[in-house]
Design a binder for these strands. Structure first.
Lengths: 182, 182
DNA sequence: ATTATATATATCAAACTGATATATATGCAT
DNA sequence: ATGCATATATATCAGTTTGATATATATAAT
């Protein structure tokens, strides 16, 4: 999927600055996708030149100007067109361009070359890390307004539920099978 | 994890050509990691110059020479050192440099901008695709010798089991919750 | 007879990341 | 109070990586 479509899609959820788009990739979307500043800022400039987004500079006393981007009607139309094109090509190919690079799995693959204690510590750390993630996805308590609005999106609650289910399965499997690695 | 460590690790499972390393990333490892030819071939050359791997040219009549690389003692030592260093740094950081870029999840995130029938077709295709993968990981019947040897690796059977469990959970979730998206 | 796919290596433009630079504010420990 | 780390905010770029393409042949399918 093109970076333009992705930025437009995120801006369709509400106006945001480049910094705030990056924060989504570090927070709620961190398990599904990411883009770096080096991609986000140039893309936003390009979208602005093409009038797919508008930009309001919030001059802040003694902080850099905050540039808040809002998707335009032209941008909404373009995004939907791109999305449809992507979906159609996925249907034809039967794959989704999904890419996983998990260093944890590589480490497991080469587990026999690690000292037993090191492998043990790594597995403990991983279980702790996954448990934290699980709690994060399960958590349904009070959150700031903008995040609350996101949670009410059907698609986000679908994805959060799937992530929680997958993490739960992963954790249970690790606990039941980890001794098979040593 | 460095590309050198990854190639050495794969060669520690047995001698292989660059083409065959790539095949592992398209087959048994496709859900966990990938490297392109543009990375694999130069890495192999670099490892050969450093005597971390040795190379035998199998001259084939009217096909390009097949260069089969074998990991050396020096290479084994280097790989284990790198692996230990990586594991230690993962323990300190508490994360694993895992990276997921799932275009399917992005498409779901923006599902409300897709025509109902398109979303439906995409979800059907995805379920079919995941079911195929699931069967692949579950399959325990006869396979060629080199793949059979791989399957007997503890780490690979651990990973295959985890992959099957995760796919099963994902499929069940999709079937139970997909109507919530429309 | 032609097209598509598989084997096999190599290269490179284009894209992307990770790091760094710049500038300020805030909180926390010493 | 002074130093240190972290957070806000944008911008740039060297270095790495990918995805596509080139080359050459064999085989299977249409």
């Amino acid at each position: 999927m093109q970076k333009e479509t992705i930025c437009l899609g995120i801006l369709s959820l509400g106006p945001r600055s480049g910094y705030e788009i990056k924060q989504m990739f570090q927070g709620p979307l961190s398990d599904f996708y990411s883009l770096s500043f080096g991609t986000i800022y140039p893309t936003l400039n390009k979208l602005q030149s093409g009038k797919f987004v508008s930009c309001k500079q919030h001059t802040q006393s003694k902080k850099p100007d905050k540039k808040v981007y809002t998707i335009t009607k032209k941008g909404m139309a373009q995004m939907q067109e791109n999305l449809l094109g992507d979906a159609s090509s996925y249907i034809r190919s039967g794959n989704y361009g999904d890419q996983i690079k998990s260093e944890f799995f590589l480490l497991i693959l080469f587990a026999k070359y690690l000292p037993k204690e090191t492998l043990d510590t790594v597995l403990n750390e991983r279980v702790l890390f996954l448990r934290q993630k699980f709690e994060q996805f399960k958590y349904d308590g009070p959150v700031p307004g903008d995040i609350k609005a996101l949670r009410e999106e059907k698609s986000i609650s679908f994805i959060r539920g799937l992530a929680a289910a997958l993490l739960d399965t992963g954790l249970t499997y690790m606990e039941k099978n980890r001794e098979k690695l040593s």
